[in-house]
């Protein structure tokens, strides 16, 4: 069996991607970029799922990844539709300009 990359490396990369996503969501004000950061978080999850799955030799984790991808696609369809509807009315996709109700 060939030498493989240890599990820790995958988990550290995944945690790094996840935190990058969180920072993106918190600091950016453009709805599309916030959404991209969320997708990054989901992909970080996919990476750890696959890494664990390979580590255990258990197929369930890889199967979960397909569900996450499908759900992320559905979320993207709905999310971009909402952003588009908002852009039509406001001519802006910046979340701080969408603030009639106080946070």
């Amino acid at each position: 069996m060939m030498t493989s990359i240890p599990l820790d490396y995958y988990l550290i990369l995944s945690a790094f991607l996840f935190v990058t996503g969180i920072i993106g969501v918190i600091t950016r004000r453009n709805a599309i970029i916030i959404f991209m950061s969320i997708e990054l978080m989901l992909n970080a999850v996919n990476l750890s799922m696959v890494a664990f799955s390979a580590f255990f030799g258990d197929i369930a984790g890889q199967m979960f990844v397909f569900f996450i991808m499908a759900v992320a696609a559905a979320e993207a369809a709905v999310g971009l539709a909402i952003v588009l509807a908002l852009f039509r009315r406001k001519k802006s996709v910046y979340v701080d300009e969408v603030n009639i109700m106080k946070w």
């Binding site: 969501v25 709805a31 916030i34 959404f35 969320i38 978080m41 979320e75 709905v78 999310g79 909402i82 952003v83 509807a85 908002l86 009315r89 979340v95 969408v98 603030n99 009639i100 109700m101």
Partner: peptide, 14 residues
């Protein structure tokens, strides 16, 4: 309504 959907979507996906 749009604002509510937007906030719900972004925070919900987060």
């Amino acid at each position: 309504s749009l604002e509510s959907a937007m906030k719900y979507f972004l925070l919900g996906a987060f």
